[in-house]
Design a protein around this nucleic acid. Structure first.
Lengths: 216, 216
DNA sequence: ACGAAACTTCGCTAAACACCGAAGTATGCC
DNA sequence: GGCATACTTCGGTGTTTAGCGAAGTTTCGT
């Protein structure tokens, strides 16, 4: 949740619960603790409660923790062979990360479904149509408090993948179609055979299956 | 434990368990976890295992957490009236902090039991005698891995009090003589009437009793 | 005015955790 | 060699915690 706030700046309680994959009531309890300890600030906006990191000091702290965590993950992956799956495809907060996240993002730009603008990635007309086929209404995300689309640093690829509300929606759509599966509480993504085929057809991705079988 | 390592640089497992007020076996478990997460490094030295923070990044992180914790404590104390006792006298890791720590330190310098040197505070001949009366052998601490004596920043007094192994020994001596009492698990120090008298006689301190009665 | 949505508080449960003492492994000292 | 010291591992225990759903509060839309 703190990482999400660091990236997106301001998020509502419900959005944060989705990011953390926990019930709204649980998120509310955690946020109350974070408030009490002075790490996050709250601001009312209609029936929403918008949370953000209190100030730059907290941002620095989160950055520091993230940097150490990344370094630790990198060292761990260098030591054991298991995290191959982690490098292949994993969750980054609530969207695609690892090689799969990177390749998907690249493909979206290459096929002109996204283009770079001064303020970050933007959706083209073709892109909006593609998202619509996935059941995602891009315009709905523009009104959202949460940043709809941004670039998120990928530590293993040393490049960027998509983050923000739309990236999270894309992840959901992939899961709904059973292109990918994720074990509850874990971040390794299992790419199904169906997913391999679909991603080749949709985006021309040449990516192999990986990770252990996951029963849903 | 991380704070102690930040200040003292290198500490043995037993010293760290004393700092944290837990059994050596428990400390060992915690240190194993800190090792596994890459926050501390271990180095063998005879039958000792010396722990230290892995690098500057971890130091920065600890500093950042400490700064936030201090700010939070300051805000909390400004809001409620309870922490008066906290400002009066409290534990700072394993030595005296708050007004009591500050006044004690000042008195030791004023009475020429300590003097300032280029490398930090040093014990004078009279100081060694005074410590001896308390049952503390200053020379024994000089051979210790732990920094014997240093200045430690006091957030509430915005000044310095004594830290290090000898400061910890002084705290123990005060407790043994029942000049002060500390509830297990808490950091507020209760100054006994006996302590008020003794500190006036020993160091000329004009400090009042404070905190709630503590049964030992 | 009514229902839906956003959020929090409460009661409860299952899992995780800190903690300790006892037992086991090194290492140093006589 | 024998014994003390420094430390870790293991088994067991009591407390804390995260988590959820149900119920309550405020706000928005109609």
């Amino acid at each position: 949740m703190l990482m999400s706030l660091r990236f997106d700046g301001v998020l509502s309680a419900t959005e944060l619960s989705a990011v953390a994959n926990i019930a709204p009531s649980t998120a509310s309890e955690h946020l109350a603790k974070l408030m009490a300890s002075g790490l996050v600030a709250r601001q009312k906006s209609g029936r929403h409660r918008l949370y953000s990191l209190t100030d730059g000091d907290v941002c620095d702290l989160v950055d520091g923790l993230a940097a150490l965590a990344e370094r630790h993950a990198a060292i761990a992956s260098a030591r054991s062979s298991f995290p191959q799956a982690l490098l292949h495809s994993r969750l980054c907060l609530d969207h695609l990360g690892g090689r799969l996240g990177y390749l998907t993002t690249n493909a979206l730009f290459a096929r002109n479904l996204l283009h770079h603008s001064a303020t970050g990635p933007e959706i083209t007309q073709e892109g909006a149509a593609w998202l619509n086929d996935l059941g995602i209404d891009a315009n709905a995300h523009l009104d959202n408090v949460r940043c709809p689309l941004r670039l998120c640093h990928d530590w293993s690829e040393k490049a960027y993948h998509l983050g923000g509300g739309i990236a999270a929606a894309i992840l959901s759509a992939f899961r709904q179609r059973d292109w990918i599966r994720v074990k509850r509480g874990e971040i390794v993504i299992f790419l199904t055979p169906k997913g391999v085929t679909a991603l080749r057809a949709e985006l021309g991705l040449d990516i192999r299956q990986s990770g252990d079988e996951v029963r849903t």
